[in-house]
Simulated scan of single mutants.
Amino acid sequence: MSFYRTCMKCDAPLAADEVAIYMKLVSRTAREFLCIDCLGVQLHCGREPIEKLIAYFRASGHCVLFR
């Protein structure tokens, strides 16, 4: 049995980075998550700024959520 998470709004399967960016930007204790597209709508910024933040946090190596 495999365990995977889905977006609480659109039910799309989530990648690890999508879960990590949601935890970083919204709540570290979250148990339900939004995909990048739905999170972009909620934050009124779209997909591109969120993808740039993911790349930044992954490249920095300082955030344990993106290791």
Results as ranks from 00 to 15, higher is better:
Met1Thr: 12
Ser2Val: 07
Phe3Tyr: 12
Phe3Lys: 08
Phe3Trp: 10
Phe3Ala: 15
Thr6Trp: 10
Thr6Lys: 13
Cys7Val: 14
Cys7Tyr: 04
Met8Val: 07
Asp11His: 05
Asp11Tyr: 08
Asp11Gly: 00
Asp11Leu: 02
Ala12Ile: 06
Ala12Thr: 09
Pro13Asp: 04
Pro13Ser: 09
Ala16Asp: 14
Ala16Cys: 02
Val19Trp: 02
Val19Gln: 10
Tyr22Leu: 04
Tyr22Ile: 03
Met23Cys: 01
Ser27Thr: 06
Arg28Val: 02
Arg28Ile: 00
Ala30Tyr: 05
Arg31Cys: 09
Glu32Asn: 14
Phe33Thr: 00
Phe33Glu: 01
Leu34Ile: 10
Leu34Trp: 03
Ile36Met: 06
Leu39Cys: 04
Leu39Pro: 02
Leu39Phe: 04
Val41Tyr: 06
Gln42Gly: 04
Leu43Ala: 07
His44Gly: 07
His44Arg: 13
Cys45Glu: 12
Gly46Pro: 14
Gly46Cys: 14
Gly46His: 12
Pro49Ser: 13
Ile50Gln: 00
Glu51Asp: 14
Glu51Asn: 08
Lys52Arg: 12
Leu53Cys: 08
Ile54Phe: 11
Tyr56Ala: 13
Tyr56Leu: 15
Ala59Pro: 08
Ser60Tyr: 10
Ser60Phe: 08
Gly61Cys: 11
His62Ala: 07
Cys63Thr: 13
Leu65His: 06
Leu65Asn: 08
Phe66Asp: 11
Arg67Gly: 14
